[in-house]
Structure formats: C-alpha cells, structure tokens
Simulated scan of single mutants.
Amino acid sequence: MKKTLAILAALTVSACFGEEPPKVITLSGETMGTTYNVSVVGPPDTLEEAALAADVEAVLADVNAKMSNWDKGSEVSRFNVSTETGPVSVSGDFVTVMAAANEVHKLSDGKFDVTLGPLIELWGFGPREPADPVPSDTDIETALSFVGQADKLILKAEDSTLSKSAPEVGINLSAIAKGFGIDAVAGKLKALGVENYMVEIGGDLVTGGRNAEDKAWRIGIEKPEPGEKAVELIVPLESKGLATSGDYRNFVEHDGVRYSHIIDPVTGKPITHWTTSVSVVADDAMMADAWATAMLVLGSERGLEIAEANDIAVYFISRDENGDKNTYVTKASSAFEALQKAD
C-alpha cells in the first residue's frame, strides 16, 4: 500500500511569479488502478490545458502498454507468458526500469525483487484468491524456486535484451513502474517548458521547482492508521520524488492472524517485523517508489543501516514492540533529517 498526502499551498502573491498570483493548471484522472493528479504552476503562455491533458494521458498510456501486469497485451505481460529463455528484445524504458530494479535488489540484500509474482499470487494478493489463505511450506518452496531476480533474470542493457532462466519466471513491476510513470509525466512537462509542477499517482509523487508561494512543495506523510487520513509529518520537497509504503491497509486475516501484503522474497512469507510505514525521498519517483518497498521489507533496523550506507533519505514508522497498538516509534536516516532541517 502506497499513500502520501499531497498538500498544495494556497495561491498567494509571490515575488518570484510577480505581483499577481501565478496561473495554476490542475489535471486528474485514473491510471494504473488508482488516480493521478498533476499541478502546474506558472505554465508557459503557449501551453493549453486541453493539449496538456492529452499529452499526460498519452504518456501514461505508453507506460501502461509497457509495464502493466494487468494488461495482458503489455510488454511485461508478453514477456511473462513467453516460454522463450533466450534473450528477448525489450524497449528502452523497460531497460531503464529493470536496471534500477537490479540496483535496488543488490543494495537491499535482495529484499526488493520483481520476480515476486508467484508468491504474491500464492498469498492471495494477486488476481486470484488461493484455496487456502495460508500456503503450505511446500507451496512456498515451490514458488520460491521461480523467485530471485539476481539469478532468474539476465539484463543486457547494451543490447536492450532480457532473458529468464525458466519459462515460469515472470516479472511484476508494481513496486517501481508507478514511480517510472510519474517521472515520465514530469519529463513531458519539462519538455513543454514547465518548471514548477507536482505529479502524483496513487500517493507517490515527484515535484519540480517550487509551489505557488515560491516555496518548496510541502507534502504530508500519512499516519499509519486504517480508516483515517491524518498527517504524521510534513516534508518539504523541491525537485525530488517521494513514496510511502505501508502494510496497514492491505492484508488478510486467518484464524486471528494478520498477514501483510508485503512479502519477503527471501523467506517467501509476509513480513513480521514491527515497521508499518516507510517514506523515501529520492531524486526521482522511480527510485523513491522502489526503495519505499525495499525498506518496508527490510524493517527499520536493517533498513536504517542500508540507508546510512547509501545516503538514502528514509523515515520509518514502527509499532510499539510491546504490543501497544496506539504507540508508534519513528526513526529517520541522516539524509532525511537533513531535508527537514533545510526547510
């Protein structure tokens, strides 16, 4: 589950934009099984809202056509159903996403993994519900035999090819493609001459420049409370991406035990540590998206070690280890604390 509260500043007089409040274009719609919102502050005079809306829709349609696991005709879906184990030509965008996924996989102790699909389906968080909500150890081991992108997939970026070790190996890009799509929209805005913007899809986002008050965009991180929309912390963002991953809304219960939709690709089972929400700030939305998932699987203890070693801005919210459901413990990396101090 990804959720961030996008807080837009009120439109007030700004020295940067002149004496009059800047023009703001806002667009919204549906994509990737969720919603999107685009805000453009002080657009070029030649930029028409209708044309911009069409451009945004075209970019998102192109991303879905390549990376949607729900579109049976998409590039990733065709790769998944293919029985070919030799090199398959893939698009430049696919190479970009897979290269980023490989980087996060390597740095995260293998906790970020795009071959997680068999386990997602086994635990009932995919397109079908399992006959038994709690898989057997044997079924988990079988699913794990097709998981592990480091040795199940071979990306040759220079040739724009991707191969898999067995026909059953597949790719699920749900934890990184959304961020790529956000960045793709932002790239289109910049190509059109837009300098100040925010692009948000399903709570993940990227900002460019400054808001209508000529200040950094101010984004609220949500408290990890099911059924509520309260702000835990305000994060100032200027030309940065932000993603939040949490386990407090998407889960299943069986015999009184809650099973998170966040699955550890190493154990093959839902995470059991106390970390319930992770927010990551990165240079773009794609890396923020991927690292938010990776950090949630890692948990605050190991996640913070990796964050410090790689200068990642991350904010952890964990449940009280003594079982108090109303008490949370927060931790932030040095890079995240520096962002707050710079506000």
Score class of each variant (00 low, 15 high):
residue 12 T to M: 15
residue 15 A to T: 14
residue 17 F to C: 14
residue 19 E to V: 15
residue 19 E to R: 11
residue 20 E to I: 13
residue 21 P to G: 05
residue 22 P to S: 09
residue 28 S to Q: 10
residue 29 G to W: 08
residue 32 M to I: 12
residue 37 N to G: 09
residue 38 V to W: 02
residue 42 G to P: 14
residue 46 T to H: 08
residue 49 E to D: 11
residue 49 E to T: 09
residue 50 A to L: 07
residue 50 A to Y: 04
residue 51 A to T: 13
residue 51 A to H: 08
residue 54 A to C: 09
residue 54 A to T: 03
residue 57 E to L: 04
residue 57 E to T: 08
residue 60 L to H: 11
residue 60 L to M: 11
residue 62 D to V: 06
residue 63 V to T: 09
residue 67 M to A: 12
residue 71 D to H: 06
residue 74 S to E: 02
residue 74 S to G: 06
residue 80 N to K: 01
residue 86 G to K: 02
residue 94 F to H: 09
residue 96 T to M: 10
residue 97 V to R: 02
residue 98 M to S: 04
residue 99 A to N: 12
residue 104 V to E: 08
residue 104 V to I: 15
residue 106 K to S: 13
residue 108 S to H: 03
residue 109 D to P: 07
residue 110 G to Q: 10
residue 111 K to A: 15
residue 111 K to R: 12
residue 112 F to T: 11
residue 112 F to Y: 01
residue 114 V to R: 04
residue 115 T to R: 01
residue 117 G to L: 11
residue 122 L to R: 00
residue 123 W to K: 03
residue 124 G to P: 04
residue 125 F to I: 05
residue 125 F to H: 07
residue 126 G to F: 00
residue 138 T to M: 06
residue 139 D to F: 04
residue 139 D to A: 11
residue 140 I to F: 04
residue 141 E to N: 03
residue 142 T to S: 01
residue 146 F to V: 08
residue 156 K to D: 11
residue 156 K to V: 09
residue 156 K to N: 14
residue 158 E to M: 03
residue 158 E to A: 14
residue 166 A to V: 10
residue 168 E to G: 00
residue 169 V to H: 05
residue 169 V to I: 05
residue 171 I to N: 00
residue 173 L to Y: 12
residue 174 S to P: 06
residue 183 D to W: 03
residue 185 V to F: 04
residue 185 V to G: 14
residue 188 K to A: 15
residue 189 L to W: 00
residue 190 K to M: 14
residue 193 G to T: 08
residue 193 G to I: 12
residue 196 N to Q: 09
residue 198 M to W: 03
residue 199 V to N: 09
residue 201 I to T: 09
residue 202 G to R: 01
residue 213 E to Y: 07
residue 213 E to C: 14
residue 219 I to A: 02
residue 223 K to F: 08
residue 224 P to G: 02
residue 225 E to S: 04
residue 226 P to H: 02
residue 228 E to M: 09
residue 229 K to F: 13
residue 230 A to Q: 11
residue 231 V to T: 14
residue 231 V to E: 12
residue 233 L to T: 13
residue 239 S to M: 11
residue 240 K to Y: 09
residue 243 A to P: 10
residue 249 R to P: 08
residue 249 R to S: 07
residue 250 N to W: 10
residue 250 N to E: 13
residue 250 N to V: 06
residue 251 F to M: 12
residue 251 F to E: 02
residue 256 G to W: 01
residue 257 V to S: 07
residue 258 R to A: 06
residue 263 I to H: 00
residue 269 K to M: 11
residue 273 H to F: 01
residue 273 H to L: 04
residue 277 S to C: 07
residue 280 V to F: 03
residue 280 V to W: 00
residue 285 A to W: 02
residue 288 A to Y: 05
residue 290 A to E: 03
residue 294 A to K: 02
residue 295 M to T: 00
residue 298 L to I: 11
residue 300 S to N: 10
residue 300 S to Y: 05
residue 301 E to S: 07
residue 305 E to P: 07
residue 306 I to D: 14
residue 308 E to F: 01
residue 308 E to I: 10
residue 310 N to T: 10
residue 311 D to A: 08
residue 311 D to W: 07
residue 313 A to K: 00
residue 317 I to T: 08
residue 318 S to M: 05
residue 318 S to F: 10
residue 322 N to S: 15
residue 326 N to G: 14
residue 328 Y to P: 05
residue 330 T to M: 13
residue 331 K to I: 06
residue 334 S to Y: 09
residue 336 F to G: 02
residue 337 E to L: 12
residue 338 A to E: 08
residue 338 A to K: 11
residue 339 L to M: 14
residue 340 Q to W: 07
